[in-house]
Design a protein around this nucleic acid. Structure first.
Lengths: 158, 158
DNA sequence: AATTGATATGATATATTGTATCATTAGAAG
DNA sequence: CTTCTAATGATACAATATATCATATCAATT
């Protein structure tokens, strides 16, 4: 992501936080900015390294985890369970609801696309859940993929 | 799951393995049986404990991980990324393909239901992936839920 | 500006999950 | 029975994550 886009995202994030009565501190900006620049999913410890590289100062892992939790609550980043990594929300600058989200995750390069799901499909998924006697609490679909580049570059199964 | 059902599953698993030219050893049976009896998702280390409780002998964590990998390759267990736990496949005794599988996971009690997805929905998911320029390599949908019991028993968000 | 209370961050320890590697044992095949 | 391979054990360690207590920062009020 270009530096301009990063700044635009940060600005919007700041605005969103203000609206929610919470603060986007400089450390939080630093972590979010790191994720936005990376343009892929990073682990908490990769973010520790990146913060060190960018600022020269060591950010404790504990702080990174706390900040990631905060950013996730603000819907500014998402945690991907598939690979225990974190990715910036790709809808910060567009006004967006937070319905069921579908992530396409490249297993090789950690590139992530966050795509929309057809509302009728969401309904069907929801009704499957309900029919089975469950209550959905975190609707996040993660699909383990290869992106086009990695698919053509690397040998792959089948 | 009743002891009878467990045994029936083990028997079928043994048969499947034989067909694939691999061995369902006694340790592997022990781990699979542990998962079948538990009737919920367990972590690798919970399985270590359970094996200790059942047999008195300590099974090294390393062995449990290897065995879980083996069982997963044989489609006898599934790894749930959502919570880093493992669950017995609920379709061992029915002849089953391994298309897209949908798991409903109770975040409180780790109960898991493995339900079928409508083929048309699978197609649509697949085509979403393809349209975004990705290649699906592991189609497993995990939905974080509360089961009916936990939903009514515990206070819940919203 | 100083006080205070709440929020955020640092520091440290430790828990949890998972892998690498080399040694040993058990099974199957001749 | 030997021999080869697959499976398991033992040990060390890496990677991910949380608990807890101390300190610093911010912001509202005096």
């Amino acid at each position: 992501m270009t530096m301009n886009s990063v700044l635009e995202n940060i600005k919007q994030a700041e605005h969103n936080c203000k609206e929610h009565g919470v603060r986007l501190t400089s450390k939080r900006k630093q972590v979010l900015s790191g994720l936005l620049q990376a343009d892929k999913a990073l682990s908490a410890y990769e973010l520790v390294d990146q913060c060190k590289d960018e600022s020269g100062k060591t950010m404790p892992a504990m702080s990174v985890y706390r900040i990631l939790d905060f950013l996730a609550e603000e819907h500014l980043v998402h945690k991907l369970d598939s690979n225990n990594k974190y990715v910036a929300c790709s809808h910060i600058t567009c006004s967006h609801g937070h319905e069921v989200t579908q992530f396409l995750i490249c297993e090789k390069c950690q590139r992530v696309d966050e795509i929309n799901i057809d509302p009728s499909m969401i309904e069907q998924l929801q009704s499957n859940v309900k029919d089975a006697g469950y209550h959905l609490i975190s609707p996040q679909l993660e699909m383990k993929c290869l992106c086009e580049t990695c698919f053509t570059t690397f040998p792959h199964p089948n």
